[in-house]
């Protein structure tokens, strides 16, 4: 049977893509951010997941306001990145895992999550930057992927509790899959930031740190809050913490932090990184 080996949550700021392309990992601005990934790289080397289920939010590459799914699951044999309009380099196609995708789709719909299915799907920086951060410079990607996209563009957004429960259902679906696969669940986005309005530049370090501290042991601390309150606390784009809650939900039960990093600022964003595992029984 498939097994979830852990959950990784990370920011996905577009500027990271430019920094990787320009090889700025050792640059003083970037070093505290990139150095945070070394323990995660060692963990990935050791655990060697076969598949990554990636919970992310599209920013207007694949989905537009003409059709805006609340939850969408990719079911393609590969996922392509494309020009997003402001010049971050595109990445090579990422292999999919369509059989696992359809298993997730069956299980999620069976649990009353009425998701949209996508046999063709462009994946944007929220998917590709975490891939590039977690598996840098490998040429061929060492994992297959299943993208799960959550709408954070157009309100009403799904509630934080709904995203957490979606993650729980994703976790149950993965662990009911018959093939022996090691699966890592990845949630991308956040932490606090706001790009738009007179409050642009808003960052809430105190909230972010408490969120990261509570996520393994008490995810409902954040999940029970309203979208409106979470936007007030984390910013209009900080609401991307929904993906962290979903990834945490997939782990289920009790979890522990294996590694974390937090750095302000990357571009306009408080950048966070966590690696969580289930607490050993």
């Amino acid at each position: 049977m498939a097994k979830i080996v852990g959950a990784i949550t990370t920011s996905h700021v577009p500027a990271i893509g430019k920094a990787i392309a320009r090889n700025l990992r050792e640059d003083p601005y970037w070093k505290p951010f990139f150095d945070g990934f070394a323990p995660v790289h060692r963990w990935l080397e050791r655990v060697r997941p076969d598949v990554a289920v990636i919970l992310y939010n599209d920013h207007g590459l694949n989905f537009f306001l003409d059709k805006m799914p609340t939850f969408a699951v990719g079911a393609a044999s590969e996922y392509r990145n494309a020009d997003e309009g402001w010049g971050i380099p595109t990445l090579p196609p990422v292999p999919g895992s369509p059989k696992l995708s359809w298993h997730l789709i069956e299980r999620l719909v069976g649990e009353e999550f009425d998701i949209t299915t996508c046999q063709e799907m462009l994946v944007d920086h929220a998917f590709t930057i975490p891939m590039a951060l977690l598996w840098p410079g490998k040429g061929a990607w060492p994992v297959r992927t299943v993208p799960v996209c959550i709408n954070t563009v157009q309100h009403p957004l799904p509630s934080a509790m709904r995203c957490y429960k979606l993650g729980e259902a994703v976790g149950r679906a993965i662990e009911s899959y018959e093939e022996d696969l090691r699966v890592v669940v990845i949630g991308t986005g956040g932490l606090s930031h706001q790009l738009d309005g007179e409050r642009a530049g808003f960052i809430n370090k105190a909230f972010d740190l408490e969120f990261m501290e509570k996520l393994p042991s008490d995810p409902l601390w954040a999940a029970r809050r309203s979208i409106r309150d979470l936007v007030e606390l984390t910013g209009t784009q900080g609401i991307e913490l929904l993906m962290w809650l979903a990834a945490r939900g997939a782990l289920g039960g009790e979890a522990v932090t294996v590694h974390s990093n937090y750095h302000i600022p990357i571009s306009n964003t408080a950048a966070g990184l966590m690696l969580m595992e289930r607490r050993a029984a």
Partner: peptide, 25 residues
Amino acid sequence: PGTTLFDGAAAMKGYALNKMCYSFN
């Protein structure tokens, strides 16, 4: 304060503008 939630009203009002911007991919 200083924050606009992009809701249904905004999505209707802004459709043409956002559609143009989306074309800039």
